[in-house]
Nucleic acid binder design. Sequence first.
DNA 1: CCAGCAGCCTGAAAGC
DNA 2: TGCTTTCAGGCTGCTG
Length: 285
Amino acid sequence: MPELPEVETIRRQLDPLVTGAVIVAADSHWSDKFTPALDAVGATITGINRRGKYLLFQLDDDGDDESDDGYDDGYELVAHLGMTGSFHLEPGSGSDPSCADHGKHTRAVWAFDDGRHLVFDDTRRFGRLRVVPTGVYNDIATLHHMGPEPLDGEFTGASLHKAIVGKSRSIKTQLLSQRPVAGVGNIYADEALFLAGIDPRARRVGRERCDRLAETVKQVLAAGIDNGGTTLRDYVNAEGDIGRNQHSLLVYGRGGEPCTLCAEPLSTVVIDARTTTFCKNCQNR
DNA sequence: CCAGCAGCCTGAAAGC
DNA sequence: TGCTTTCAGGCTGCTG
């Protein structure tokens, strides 16, 4: 389940390898979640950015701006990995890409002018692809309303508090909404709430606790990146390797095990259909 | 506008 | 040649 650290790990690996490549052909799974892959044909990849859990492949549409459509800044291939998405490159695969020639769960393939293929696999098909004018996210609701990047300085206890004050949903639900802060998923939400001493079911979190939570969100995401992401089931980076951060998790997936702070058994509850692990003793509502 | 929830997906694991 | 049920969950789109 790729969250910000996993997506950032992939971005860092892929960016130097695909920058400058020209997409000469593409193929995709029939679902309209993936057919937008074909819209990138003809473009040159000028780099990869990331916003929250979304990868943003920057596309230069070859200088053909005669249409004067107001989108001189080019386009972006927006990719969300969903639960099980992954990217990798295959060398020298030719200019006639076909998903069927790759893995059983390959959902999109882009052929480059040098013969390499960029391959997107996604077993459960929770991922999505779109090509949009750069920065125009009106049709991608979560991206359009995305909160600040957690590691770039804009995200603070004050901004977190401002984003959640007056809302009645649990703090964990709000973190997962991507609106108070970008890129936090189930694993890192549980970890950050544990370190901040906040019960994930809490519906009122004051300013001081927001200060703590903002710090622990940054802490767990930065550690996740340093460790190359968390692999519990499916996640692999662009080189096919698993992450190492699963060895650093303090609560996620450890229901029933002793809390590392007080040794009481960790509790498991379901919040919004997501398994949630926390310590009733160390985390307060 | 917000809160809540069904639906999308497949394979691994558990249950019988 | 085991079948069935449960579980994992990010996001979309609908309802109230």
